[in-house]
Design a protein around this nucleic acid. Structure first.
Lengths: 196, 196
DNA sequence: AGCATATTAGAGAGTTCTCTCCAATATGGA
DNA sequence: TCCATATTGGAGAGAACTCTCTAATATGCT
């Protein structure tokens, strides 16, 4: 009933991930994405209403993929201490398996022009963040956290510290060393020792 | 012997810090800096050879100010454990005292166009990083660190974790909570417990 | 075969920014 | 007073990018 597409959204987003990993989010221009897949710029605008929408989709597709697996690693383990350690490990392991997407996540949504995103995409981001925060809150409760300081310490242990381990190496352009997962897990354990 | 300057470099750099804190490094355009201080764009180019040079100076002035105080906080304390705790605290305290400059540092040199910097500025950055790494290495030796994993753990404790504490709040647009220094110090302590 | 339609294809207008260039200007020193 | 000079002041060329618009094209359905 219609001409078959030569370029689909995922193909364009993949190109955008490559560009962002190589030259940062600023390198993701509509022309660069089009050129990367050999499409005219019109085809990119056919899939995405504009650059803000494209940037939002790149970010959201990546962060949602990450959060989905992250949530699984938290949920699979009933004991909260073991769950926290698994989650810390998982951040590093996922980054090792998906270095370009990890590089992308390290930039943060602001750099992907979050301020200009269409409302629909903003809500998608908010929803994902709410779900993740809720999971962390549940972990905090299970660990016996009491105040905001405790909750923040837990977030440090299972999110920020593992990300820092990854950031150090990816920013330096190195591969993750073999001990990275252990380092993240050990550090998380040290930070959570005071609980339960 | 010459017409007196109405706009000096520091004034332009201050404006650039403001712009970067508000809208990220991308908001630091030559025109925006000029407009912010009421100067014509020609005056900005009279002080800086181009945008890369301006971005480099903004970054370097800020990071050097930070590193100078950071080094002092490490050196003032002979006991390495106490020095590490003081350093972790200091990162947060400095960020509290200089929120805009802290916001700037959280972006990292890449976002300030490091790849385009003139060689002179690159060397300045390398020198500063070398000095800081040397100090961390000395701290590692004093603590009895053996391998790269140990050294990385120490860097996490006295640099990355305190920065993560700051990042969480500045990214959310909040002020740092009163307990932030304690949280950074406690976390550093927990990560360093295994040493000596 | 022929129609309806989703998509490709690409030209080009409009915008924003960087950087250059030159004239105007204000000051200290001779 | 007058000169040398550092700096201001601003216009504008050139580059990169976003986005629009129109025509061409290929497919499924009848």
């Amino acid at each position: 009933m219609a001409r078959p597409p030569r370029f689909d959204s995922d193909q364009l987003l993949d190109a955008a991930v490559h560009l962002a990993a190589g030259g940062g989010p600023a390198a993701v221009t509509m022309s660069a994405v089009a050129q990367a897949v050999g499409a005219p710029s019109g085809s990119v605008y056919h899939r995405f209403s504009g650059r803000p929408a494209l940037m939002a989709e790149v970010w959201l597709r990546t962060v949602e993929r990450f959060q989905e697996e992250y949530a699984q690693s938290l949920d699979q383990e009933p004991d909260p201490h073991r769950a926290a350690r698994a989650a810390a490990r998982h951040v590093v392991a996922w980054s090792r398996a998906h270095p370009r997407q990890a590089a992308l996540l390290l930039h943060g949504p602001e750099e992907f022009g979050q301020a200009d995103w269409p409302p629909e995409h903003r809500e998608r981001a908010d929803g994902g963040n709410r779900r993740t925060l809720a999971r962390l809150a549940a972990l905090g409760t299970a660990l016996g956290a009491t105040g905001p300081e405790d909750r923040e310490r837990i977030a440090l242990a299972v999110v920020e510290v593992p990300l820092s381990v990854v950031r150090r190496h990816l920013r330096a352009g190195e591969a993750l060393p073999p001990y990275a997962e252990d380092l993240a897990e050990d550090s998380a354990t040290a930070l959570l020792d005071r609980f339960g």
